[in-house]
């Protein structure tokens, strides 16, 4: 990845990782981070649960519950769905690559 930093934004210091099921990552296009995308977290029935804009470095994070989720990424001219499993005490890390 050119200019793209893996991982979510810096975690707040007061977060107890053992109690959270974190999903985080980065949205890229052509190897570059996408700072103007929106990532939506949908539950196992497809119901919207949360949405975050990507950071200036293309990153995002959710404090989800344990289970299977869909991440729907919207960006100018592109949309991508990705399945992800979250578990308490762990960080599910992913890169969402948008079509160039």
């Amino acid at each position: 990845m050119c200019g793209a930093v893996a991982g979510g934004p810096a975690l707040p210091a007061n977060v107890d990782l053992g109690k959270e099921a974190i999903i985080q990552g980065i949205v890229t296009r052509d190897g570059h981070p996408v700072p103007n995308a929106y990532v939506r977290l949908l539950d196992k029935t497809g119901e919207f649960t949360a949405e975050v804009p990507t950071s200036a470095t293309g990153q995002f994070r959710f404090f989800a519950g344990p289970g299977t989720w869909t991440l729907r990424t919207l960006a100018p001219g592109a949309q991508a769905d990705r399945q992800v499993a979250a578990a308490l005490g762990s960080i599910a890390e992913l890169e969402i690559v948008l079509p160039a």
């Binding site: 707040p12 007061n14 977060v15 109690k19 977290l41 649960t49 949360a50 994070r61 404090f63 519950g65």
Partner: peptide, 18 residues
């Protein structure tokens, strides 16, 4: 709120610490 918050499975929206 989201169905999981309503049912009491979580206490805050999923992009915030619980």
């Amino acid at each position: 709120r989201s169905p999981d918050e309503y049912a009491g499975r979580i206490l805050a929206p999923a992009h915030l610490p619980q």
